[in-house]
Design a protein around this nucleic acid. Sequence first.
DNA 1: TCCATTGTTTGACAACCATCCAACTATAAG
DNA 2: CTTATAGTTGGATGGTTGTCAAACAATGGA
Lengths: 104, 104
Amino acid sequence: MRQLPHPDAKDIQLTEVLRVLGDPVRLELVVKLADGRELSCSSAGDDLDIHKSTLSHHYRALREAGVTRTRLNGRERMLSLRRDDLDARFPGLINSILTAAHPA
Amino acid sequence: MRQLPHPDAKDIQLTEVLRVLGDPVRLELVVKLADGRELSCSSAGDDLDIHKSTLSHHYRALREAGVTRTRLNGRERMLSLRRDDLDARFPGLINSILTAAHPA
DNA sequence: TCCATTGTTTGACAACCATCCAACTATAAG
DNA sequence: CTTATAGTTGGATGGTTGTCAAACAATGGA
């Protein structure tokens, strides 16, 4: 498995995006990726008191919904937000969600 | 029961809104309310092939999440989208969701 | 008063979900 | 080669969810 499967941008489903983001843990993870950085799985979840396997399931849900992209990098997996793809498909959506979620 | 309980605008939670809208049936219902009309429960669900009790549960979920308002009117219940409240709390969110969901 | 209409509630049920734990894979480092 | 690191996978579990069906409540009309 050299690469992880990601849905094409055109196949990203709105209800899937909303469903996946309708979980506090996953929304928090996405907020952490909002600034465009790539984060490893461990650094993305390091201040959440959640078992690593649970986080792994969340990462998969986010990836399969098309919300995040996962890049293999040695023994790490770098997560990033698929902002361009999401913006192209659902203009303004991610922005307004992140604005709403951002405590500042 | 003269009035149904609705959350205050300030108590509407983002994850609840996203979770509730992350269901195809409920999203469809909200799309139908997008133009600002009030719809009775039966007219809102008349072209969906779903049992009326199931729809009733969806209506409650939408109302309790703060997405819709339900007004008692005789033996009907009139549904409407709480667009102002949602817009005030999460600027642009409902708009971008409706735009994304709109088939045209 | 009786009946039709509108919608809710309760129960049942299968499916799904978030979580933890233990075992596993794969890569990097020594 | 051996060990440590980064994540995943599969099982188990308890809780939630979407659905239908049947019974119920409330209103309006005949």
